[in-house]
Amino acid sequence: MVSYRKYLVERTLTFIISMFFSITIVFLVPRLAPGDPIKTALEQVIVGGGSEIEKTVEEYKRMLGLDKDLATQYIFYIKELFRGNLGYSIMYFPTPVIDIIMRAIPWSIGLLTTTTILSWIIGTFIGAIAGWRGEGSRFFNILAFIALGLYVIPYYIFAVILAYLFGYIIRIFPLSGGYTPGLMPSLNLEFILDVIWHSTLPALSIILSSLGWWFLSMRSMIINVKGEDFILMAEAKGLRKNRILWKYAFRNAILPQVTGLALSLRNVVGGALLTEVIFAYPGVGYLIFTAITNMDYPLIQGAVLFLIFTTCFLNFAIDILYPLVDPRIRYGEE
């Protein structure tokens, strides 16, 4: 356990250092980029004289603190970050960027966590049984073929197909949005059902496309493990087939699946950009998309920073939790 503590400290330091670098890069890049966003923005609004624009630009710069030197700006930036202040959106001025992100996040996390976990569970279990039954079963062979098909088709294709089939041809699901306009977002049954109804198609598109992969990888892992000596040994011990599958084969085959799940869970904050765009789903993906099309710099910057933070944090969490799943991981000791 001493070595685990050391490992913990190392991981924490890595997390802090990588966060520090990311924050600095996010700070520097827009300042190094050519062009002046304020000027560009104002030129679209103010028609006429150059000196007027210059004056207004100076005014805004002073207001935003951009007239100070880089070091002062940096310290100010870090200080504000710690207070959770990511600046103000241009699109939705004067709403703070953090508020906008916070509003989008539950949608993305809700949609992607649910879909990722659901498809992981379904794919892993069916894959395990398919692998265990082996090549002999025609049903599972056909299933593997279908899974391969699902895996190679990108999720946004499913999104388009589903939207067309169930939103346009058979109109049983809504085509866009996170909930029916006019409904007050609250935690009552009516609203929750409405959200589920709206999320069905986006969720289905993501589940369908990731299911194939979970199925195929688990199936091949089980087939691999089946050839191991400890499976033969378990059989020689006279254990029941089901016990061998779940306690010997499954427990070994699941390890890479857990890594896979953890790795894909860190994408949940980023959102499934194209699905969200196709269904105008109010998540982070859709937010970034609109921020970019509207050149909303503070919002883009804030969203990127937020994504970096969550990615780093989830990686950190995976690193910490993984040794608890697989006893062979030795916390980096010699």
Partner: peptide, 11 residues
């Protein structure tokens, strides 16, 4: 078995 190395379940 022939190789006890692999005859034990690693987890």
């Amino acid at each position: 078995p022939q190789s006890s190395m692999n005859a034990l379940n690693p987890v």
